[in-house]
Simulated scan of single mutants.
Amino acid sequence: MEQLLATFHSLNGELNKIHKEACTDVSIQQSTIMHEIQSRNEPSMQETARGLGMDITTFSRQVQTLVNGGYVKRRPYPGDRRIQILSLTDKGSKKVKQIDDEIQKQMNEALASMGEFEQEIIVRSLSQLQRILGGNEE
């Protein structure tokens, strides 16, 4: 079990390095917020913060920075103006694609020394782990 813990911390650090290198003009946290907004269909502020496990106050500040930067739009929900709906601007969508492309490139480089079978096993295993940790066991 010690090896598992050491691997967890090491892998987390390495993945954060890749994410940070891919992010220009936005923080890792802001990149994660934009990715979450993109993956949902016009989510509310609360829904997005909850999905990321973020405190709403911290989340609101980060969203405001993204709005000011032209990456995210916020509009009131028609049925209840207290609810704010989030969406990416064209600039935000382009930024998410740029970050994703860079992460994909770096991950491909990291896996290049492995055979196709090994790569497939790693991707499948990580996907399964993500489903389990996310409470979506199938």
Rank of each mutant, 00 (worst) to 15 (best):
T24V: 11
S27P: 01
I28W: 04
I28C: 12
I28N: 14
I28S: 13
Q29N: 13
T32W: 00
I33P: 01
M34E: 03
M34D: 06
H35T: 08
H35G: 07
E36M: 14
S39V: 02
S39W: 04
R40C: 10
R40S: 12
E42M: 11
S44Q: 06
M45S: 11
M45A: 06
T48I: 05
T48E: 00
A49G: 13
R50T: 13
G53P: 11
G53K: 03
G53I: 03
I56N: 13
I56K: 14
T57I: 15
T57L: 11
T57N: 14
T57R: 14
R61M: 05
T65V: 11
T65Q: 15
L66K: 05
G69N: 08
G69D: 10
G70Y: 03
Y71D: 01
K73Y: 08
K73R: 13
P76G: 09
Y77V: 02
G79P: 01
G79Q: 10
G79M: 09
D80G: 04
R81M: 08
R81L: 11
R82D: 10
R82C: 05
R82M: 11
R82H: 12
I85Q: 08
D90M: 05
G92S: 09
G92I: 02
S93L: 13
K94T: 06
K94H: 07
K94I: 05
V96I: 11
V96R: 09
K97I: 05
K97G: 00
K97Q: 15
Q98G: 00
Q98S: 13
I99Q: 07
D100Y: 04
D101C: 01
D101P: 00
E102T: 06
M107H: 00
M107A: 08
N108W: 00
N108G: 07
S113V: 10
G115R: 06
G115C: 02
E116S: 11
F117K: 11
Q119I: 06
Q119A: 02
E120K: 06
E120N: 07
I121K: 09
I121D: 05
R124P: 01
L126A: 11
Q130D: 05
Q130S: 09
Q130R: 14
